[in-house]
Simulated assay, not measured.
Amino acid sequence: MTGASPRDADQDAQDVGSLEDRVAAANIRLPVRGNRKLDGLVAAVNADVQLKAWWHAAAVNAERLGMSDHSWVHIQIVSNIALRLTRLLARRGIRLSSVADHGLDERDAEVIIVAAALFHCVGMSIHRADHEQFSLFLTADKLPALLAPLYDEPRRSIVVAEASHAIISHRSKGAPFTMEGAIVRVADALDMAKGRSRVPFEQLLPNIHSLSSYAIESVKISAGTDTAVHVEIEMNNSAGIYQVDEGLGTKLRGTPLAEHLEVVARIDAEHEERLVPVFRLS
């Protein structure tokens, strides 16, 4: 393929114009598929200038620190991945925690998962260190207000509580104990293709993190045969195994999602000796 990726195109649009223009450019797109509450949440989020400003500030802080993309584009990608994982699990009849424990339905679970994905790194607008906790602080008032037209109590508070668990669970030692928390945690890790970095590779200090991140060409998520979800990762260099094993693997192992998701990484590069042509995460 040639030309700019969807991430590049969205980020180019974001980088043009005034602060107000850049904030206004954020526009989350999701396949709501008739889920009216999810559609209502996305519409409310797209109309909320304060939340968009937090995403912008998070992106700026990430750039200041030479980190990978934490803009609204990352938010949209993680939200879409999380929704994809959720629906593949539902297709296999796997009940999510909010459905099993609270008696909510699958559409409510989608709202919980997307809400968590939308808010999971807004705390980066304050600081990188402990940003997950800052995300909870910002979520505490904002998310209930966005959900007020969609849910009455006590369901609204349950949705907020479950989304908040998923938000805090995406930190390095988050240990999610709900399927929703595991989905958001893994979806965040699956935004790993090399376009994720807004810092040119040549400017990075070469280390295993930068080399591994740049080696990931693409991530494809589909229905599995033996498991509900199959993830196939294309790499251009075996250095990408570190990103798959230490990045994604660390986020997946020990979660309720682990038994339902298989990961296969393939190396398709003529210029290097194929020491590990196929790597399976276990």
Score class of each variant (00 low, 15 high):
106 E>N: 11
92 R>C: 13
12 D>R: 09
30 L>Q: 11
100 A>K: 14
34 G>Y: 06
108 D>E: 08
83 L>K: 07
12 D>L: 12
108 D>M: 11
61 N>S: 06
13 A>L: 11
39 D>Y: 06
111 V>W: 13
54 W>I: 05
117 A>K: 00
85 L>F: 13
89 L>N: 04
44 A>M: 09
112 I>A: 08
74 H>V: 15
86 T>R: 01
76 Q>R: 10
113 I>G: 01
15 D>E: 14
109 A>S: 13
73 V>W: 00
114 V>S: 00
24 A>M: 03
117 A>C: 02
119 F>R: 06
12 D>A: 15
69 D>M: 01
52 K>C: 03
40 G>S: 08
79 S>M: 11
13 A>F: 03
118 L>I: 14
29 R>L: 15
22 R>A: 06
84 R>P: 01
97 S>N: 02
67 M>L: 15
41 L>S: 07
108 D>G: 12
68 S>H: 10
75 I>N: 01
64 R>C: 00
66 G>W: 03
55 W>D: 08
61 N>M: 09
84 R>E: 03
104 L>F: 14
11 Q>Y: 06
56 H>E: 05
29 R>I: 15
76 Q>I: 04
22 R>M: 13
18 S>E: 07
48 D>K: 00
56 H>P: 03
65 L>H: 14
43 A>Y: 05
116 A>M: 02
105 D>S: 04
59 A>N: 12
115 A>T: 12
99 V>N: 01
89 L>H: 04
71 S>A: 02
66 G>A: 07
22 R>F: 05
70 H>Y: 08
108 D>W: 12
78 V>K: 05
84 R>F: 05
79 S>T: 13
98 S>W: 13
31 P>R: 09
113 I>H: 02
102 H>M: 13
29 R>K: 10
107 R>N: 08
105 D>K: 09
118 L>H: 11
49 V>A: 10
25 A>G: 12
100 A>L: 14
86 T>S: 06
34 G>H: 04
119 F>Q: 04
86 T>E: 01
77 I>T: 05
87 R>H: 09
49 V>H: 14
11 Q>D: 03
14 Q>D: 03
77 I>L: 06
61 N>P: 00
62 A>M: 05
28 I>Y: 04
53 A>T: 15
115 A>N: 10
42 V>Q: 07
81 I>Y: 10
16 V>R: 03
67 M>T: 02
103 G>M: 14
66 G>E: 05
36 R>W: 11
113 I>C: 03
82 A>Q: 14
108 D>L: 13
29 R>A: 15
15 D>M: 09
5 S>M: 08
25 A>W: 09
94 I>T: 04
55 W>F: 07
28 I>M: 10
86 T>N: 06
40 G>R: 05
71 S>K: 01
107 R>T: 07
89 L>P: 07
63 E>V: 04
104 L>S: 12
32 V>A: 10
91 R>P: 04
95 R>C: 05
16 V>N: 01
20 E>W: 12
23 V>L: 01
113 I>A: 02
105 D>T: 01
72 W>V: 03
73 V>L: 04
88 L>T: 08
55 W>Y: 10
10 D>A: 12
107 R>F: 04
100 A>I: 15
97 S>D: 10
75 I>K: 05
90 A>F: 11
70 H>G: 05
88 L>E: 07
105 D>L: 07
80 N>V: 11
64 R>V: 00
